[in-house]
């Protein structure tokens, strides 16, 4: 092993150790972790906030080049279809299927 290969391997294993720590520490502590009621209440909002925060930029600026509030943005059209189907039917699988269908039709059909 040359010096760089060794350094890079050490880098990767260090990254792995850090990531495992961040991901697993709380799970491993398990029952020994007791959250105060205020924090519990706060954690209740994590799913809805983090999932929204991940997808909003992907929908509104899919190419990372600023706002694309236009019918020519397939991510936006597909997302609107998903919200509509989900609100009307409440069916998860149908929502995903229709949204993907609209997205692909837009991408490959309407805009092609």
């Amino acid at each position: 092993m040359t010096g760089t290969v060794l350094t890079n391997t050490v880098m990767i294993l260090g990254m792995a150790a850090i990531t495992v720590f961040v991901k697993a520490a709380l799970f491993v502590l398990g029952d020994r972790v007791v959250f105060p009621p205020l924090l519990k209440q706060a954690l209740g909002f994590v799913p809805v906030t983090v999932l929204t925060a991940i997808i909003v930029p992907m929908i509104l600026a899919p190419n990372g080049e600023g706002l694309e509030l236009t019918w020519r943005n397939p991510q936006l059209v597909g997302a609107l279809a998903a919200v509509l189907v989900c609100v009307v039917t409440g069916k998860q699988l149908l929502t995903i299927a229709v949204a993907l269908g609209v997205f692909l039709a837009w991408q490959l059909g309407v805009l092609a």
Partner: peptide
């Protein structure tokens, strides 16, 4: 744009 599959799933989880 296959990552749209993730967007669709997240919407189906969040909207309800």
């Amino acid at each position: 744009g296959l990552d749209f599959a993730m967007v669709a799933t997240f919407i189906a989880i969040v909207v309800p």
